[in-house]
Amino acid sequence: MDAGATIDAVRDQTETERDRLGSDKVLITATDATLETEAVLTAAATRESGLADILGQWAAETDSDVAAQFEAAAEAATERADRIGADADDTDGFINHLDTVSGTARRVGAALVAAPLVADRFYLQVVSFFINEADEKRADTFREVREEASTLDNGMTALEHLSESERETAATAAMDAIGAAYDDYAETLEAMGLDPKPIC
């Protein structure tokens, strides 16, 4: 598989999980059922700050061409966190999963492929939240954040630096990361007495 086919395979194999991660229930889990502006901003800032920290650490640890993609993605996540302008919390199930990933190929899959695909679904609901709040300024901000956070440019470039077998490893790690995001989402909803299966 080339880089594009690798990303397509991840998309195909995780379609159900990503659809459910794009439901309106995702903000219920991200905010502990506190659907208020500050809670939503904190959830978004937590995701971006955590991603920036992990990617920055990986960039420093990686002795390959892929380090540049980790560094670029870390800088972009830091910029998004600054734009969101809220204090980050210290808990996020997806970021906690990323913190367990080792090996360059697996890290490429988890953070440069899976993270943008998950971000696309998460920010879809953040935009919808602010539209419903009649806060068009923040809705516009998060439309931009969504577009930037969901870009796969760094993932595509990083995958091109890997061998075919490494790309297969990256694809598996991306699927595992999306699965972890979904499992955290589903378990949180179930703990609240809600069913994660219906797609909204």
Rank of each mutant, 00 (worst) to 15 (best):
A110W: 10
D87L: 07
T31N: 01
K197S: 13
T157L: 14
V113N: 02
T14D: 03
R83W: 14
T78C: 10
I178N: 06
P198Q: 15
P116K: 01
L55T: 00
I178C: 08
A173M: 04
E38G: 02
C200Q: 14
A110F: 09
A171G: 11
A170P: 01
P116H: 07
T16Q: 09
K197T: 15
D8Q: 12
E75N: 10
G155C: 05
H161E: 15
A119F: 08
Q69P: 05
A134C: 10
R80W: 12
A68S: 13
L117M: 14
T46E: 00
E79S: 10
Q57P: 04
T172E: 15
T16S: 07
A186C: 09
E164D: 15
S163H: 05
A170D: 06
G85R: 08
V118D: 08
A67E: 13
F142Y: 13
R167L: 13
A30D: 06
R107Y: 07
D153F: 08
A173S: 14
G85H: 05
A3S: 13
T16K: 04
E36L: 04
G56H: 06
D89C: 00
R18L: 10
K137M: 09
A30Y: 01
D90G: 08
L21I: 11
A73C: 05
A177H: 06
I54A: 05
V126K: 03
E147L: 10
A5K: 08
L98Q: 02
R167Q: 15
Q125R: 11
S150T: 08
A81W: 01
S49V: 12
Q13E: 12
L194F: 11
G93S: 10
F94P: 00
A149M: 01
L124G: 10
E148D: 14
A60S: 12
